[in-house]
Design a binder for these strands. Structure first.
Lengths: 224, 224
DNA sequence: ACGACGATAACACAGGTGTGCTAAAAAGGG
DNA sequence: CCCTTTTTAGCACACCTGTGTTATCGTCGT
């Protein structure tokens, strides 16, 4: 029997080379040859694992999707539901934000893939993965909001369905801002904004933690 | 004197052809020849107005930026500041959301440009326009929040700086969601979510309008 | 009418692109 | 050792790419 390599591992390796090319030079530079050079193989070797480049693109995109999904499920397996409801919510949602270099890199290529998927108007492999991830994040938001509601932690009069959408939009907006202006929207600021939003949904004053934002300037209505 | 054409108008026409190509086939298909074919001219004619394609790309991107900027200033010129502060805020922010087909098209190409700009890591023409637009929208959010604060409409204890960031992120997140799932995140839902967020910042119950969301299911804490 | 000049088209060239095909290399079992 | 099967590299082809360069066309003032 000849040399046997782990095909799946090889494919992931090539996909990660694709990520690096996309991040460095944009998706326009993601050709079979440049990716092969980046991965350190010949173009023929790459084509042995990916017969056409559309398959390479969609695989690389689904790998991003799988990565973030795995992080979420790993968090659950590790007892991510331990602690007070708001702590659990923050822990999960912070996992969806580009707080470190690795996740920022993932989000950058995800952004490129989203833009490319918009071209396949309505349907297509890329578009489907975008929808899957998008719905998955929405469902996560829904579960977390529902958990807060069942714990009786939410303030009165909230429209749960709308709050799920608002939270979901905020998460994606924050991620986008972190990608666009990482120097302005830093990791700590992301965390603080997320916490601020969750707190605004709660009925009681939240428990104070070490990075409580008491240093922020507060505005008070001028007395009349 | 020979035939004289309006160069700026021609450039805008070509840039719009670029937009159509990007929207239909993605930024990867945005070559000089495909754009020329889309615009109905020869490649040589296009290159007469844009010596190189990097200039074409950045011009097309800045045109998007100019379009949305013009809409905002046009709104101001038309007396956009008339009415109660919250009405003014909603009017301005809705202008930044892809509520109709034209603005959705603009956002789609804007998304592609943002992804491409991420490749020029840190600097570059595209990156600069992204930052300009991004800072412009943030400044708009800041002005609107400040207007609400000066009108005494905001609830107590808000951190203005953080609220500006949160509003800004929500706007971009909503726009992204409208682009990704237009069937789910419809124009009316966008408006409702934006209104919900603004209302959550106010100290008093907002004035009711015709599209008041009384039809939405409300959640009330179970009595203990 | 005609010439001058902006506008358009066409061609050339070197290189890149996806993809099919084929030959060489590598590696473990007999 | 050799042989079989997987893996890798290489080449070929037709086409597309950006960018020069050049020639033709159209239109206006004279």
């Amino acid at each position: 029997m000849p040399k046997i390599v782990d095909h799946d591992a090889r494919r992931e390796e090539i996909a990660q080379a694709l990520w690096r090319v996309v991040r460095r030079d944009g998706i326009r530079a993601a050709s079979v040859r440049t990716i092969a050079a980046e991965a350190g193989w010949s173009a023929g070797a790459v084509r042995y694992y990916f017969p056409d480049q559309d398959g390479l693109l969609s695989f690389a995109m689904e790998l991003v999707s799988r990565r973030v999904g795995d992080r979420i499920t790993a968090l659950t397996a590790r007892g991510g539901a331990k602690g007070s409801p708001t702590v659990v919510v923050l822990r999960y949602l912070e996992e969806a934000l580009p707080l470190d270099a690795e996740r920022k890199a993932e989000f950058d290529v995800w952004l490129a893939f989203m833009a490319q998927a918009q071209a396949e108007s309505g349907a297509g492999t890329l578009h489907d993965t975008v929808e899957t991830v998008h719905n998955g994040l929405r469902e996560l938001c829904a579960e977390l909001v529902n958990a807060l509601a069942e714990a009786g932690a939410l303030r009165d009069g909230l429209d749960l369905r709308l709050e799920v959408e608002r939270l979901h939009a905020l998460i994606d907006g924050l991620a986008l801002h972190a990608a666009i202006q990482p120097n302005h929207t830093t990791a700590t600021r992301l965390r603080r904004l997320l916490r601020l939003h969750i707190d605004s949904l709660l009925s009681e004053k939240p428990l104070q933690t070490k990075d409580f934002s008491s240093t922020e300037r507060q505005v008070r209505r001028k007395p009349d």
